[in-house]
Simulated scan of single mutants.
Amino acid sequence: MKENHINTTTSISKYPGQITDLAKDAAEKYGKLPYHYLLVIGGDGSLNQALNGVKKSQNPNTPIGYFPAGTGNDFARATKLSHQIKQLVSHIKVGPKTYKIDCGHYIDNNSGKDNYFVNNLGIGFDAFIVHLANNSSMKKKLNDLHIGSMIYVLHTFKVLQKQDTFSTSVKVNGNWHHFSNTYFVTTTNHPYFGGGVALLPNASIHNHKLDTVVVEKVSNIKFLFLLAKLFINGSHVNDPHFHYYEAEKLTVKTSNPEYGQLDGEELQNQNYNLNFEISSFNLWA
């Protein structure tokens, strides 16, 4: 930025969650000013915090720019955002274009709180992996080697041995669907989770819908077989233990306290009762 004579004001978060406040303050101060651009540098969790800060500010339509520098970078993968610094600077110099991009929004019926997300909200298996990965001393080391997504792979087999099952109910288009042997349930805005895993290949960040995926418990051998299908050709979606629903609004309820993750950041271990709906935000690139 300095080499190209672009004036910047930089704020660096000092603790988890601070980016929400930083982004809210920036949106309220600069959101309506011409030739001012809000840029987030970090991982999907950082983008999530910035999105929530902007959406809950007095200028919720403030465009957000994003340079992926995290572990999974699934949002950048879904939107095909560049990882090249020079291309980003070039866009700023000529004036970036703004695009309306889908995001998810949910209300927690237990607490009354609401949040937005760019990737997905997962409960169970994937969230357990996130919990272990985020608390692993290896995460920073792998990120420094630019193979950060490997941290999820390393913890997959440990979670296979420990993840329990739970009951899930999904309401879509007025109808309830019940599952008593759930392994994980994820509501997603696009295909990817866990650093590039295409959980639901047909999901799209541009179709103005959310998808809820429910995977029921199978044997460990069968589960590994499903994972192989997932990586090879996406045929795992045809398995009778794999269910998915697409809609503008969905409700997900679970029994038993379970790990949860929101855009790769941990949620409190709890029972979940969530109303989901599709939303959008302005992304510049």
Score class of each variant (00 low, 15 high):
residue 29 K to Q: 13
residue 27 A to Y: 05
residue 124 G to I: 08
residue 163 Q to K: 05
residue 40 V to C: 02
residue 193 F to K: 09
residue 228 A to W: 15
residue 14 K to D: 11
residue 90 S to Y: 07
residue 55 K to V: 07
residue 195 G to Y: 06
residue 153 V to M: 15
residue 40 V to H: 02
residue 33 L to F: 08
residue 244 Y to E: 00
residue 76 A to Q: 10
residue 246 E to H: 04
residue 13 S to Y: 01
residue 146 H to N: 14
residue 87 Q to G: 05
residue 107 I to V: 15
residue 226 L to R: 02
residue 272 Y to T: 14
residue 45 G to V: 06
residue 264 G to A: 03
residue 270 Q to C: 08
residue 16 P to I: 11
residue 111 S to R: 08
residue 37 Y to G: 08
residue 201 P to I: 03
residue 128 F to Q: 00
residue 29 K to R: 15
residue 26 A to Y: 13
residue 3 E to H: 01
residue 87 Q to V: 05
residue 38 L to S: 07
residue 275 N to Q: 10
residue 35 Y to K: 14
residue 258 E to P: 06
residue 133 A to Q: 14
residue 120 N to T: 07
residue 104 G to E: 03
residue 219 S to L: 06
residue 69 A to H: 15
residue 219 S to N: 01
residue 215 V to W: 00
residue 172 V to D: 02
residue 28 E to C: 13
residue 112 G to C: 11
residue 165 T to E: 04
residue 35 Y to S: 13
residue 249 K to H: 08
residue 278 I to S: 09
residue 21 D to K: 15
residue 71 T to L: 06
residue 160 L to Q: 00
residue 5 H to W: 08
residue 84 Q to F: 11
residue 174 G to N: 08
residue 43 G to I: 09
residue 215 V to L: 07
residue 112 G to R: 10
residue 146 H to G: 05
residue 112 G to A: 05
residue 151 I to T: 08
residue 132 L to H: 09
residue 251 T to I: 10
residue 147 I to G: 06
residue 24 K to Q: 08
residue 62 T to L: 11
residue 248 E to D: 13
residue 190 H to D: 02
residue 284 W to G: 10
residue 64 I to S: 15
residue 205 I to E: 03
residue 277 E to T: 11
residue 143 N to L: 01
residue 160 L to K: 07
residue 57 S to F: 04
residue 126 D to W: 03
residue 2 K to V: 13
residue 82 S to C: 03
residue 47 L to E: 01
residue 139 K to Q: 00
residue 69 A to L: 13
residue 258 E to Y: 02
residue 59 N to K: 02
residue 104 G to K: 11
residue 52 N to A: 08
residue 248 E to Y: 10
residue 166 F to A: 03
residue 85 I to G: 09
residue 252 V to N: 12
residue 193 F to S: 12
residue 52 N to L: 08
residue 163 Q to S: 04
residue 130 V to L: 14
residue 67 F to Y: 13
residue 170 V to Y: 06
residue 60 P to V: 13
residue 13 S to Q: 06
residue 183 Y to P: 00
residue 159 V to M: 11
residue 193 F to I: 14
residue 280 S to C: 14
residue 43 G to N: 12
residue 73 N to P: 10
residue 213 V to G: 09
residue 117 F to Q: 04
residue 118 V to L: 02
residue 8 T to F: 10
residue 253 K to M: 06
residue 172 V to Q: 11
residue 175 N to D: 01
residue 201 P to S: 08
residue 211 D to M: 04
residue 10 T to N: 00
residue 25 D to N: 14
residue 6 I to M: 07
residue 174 G to A: 10
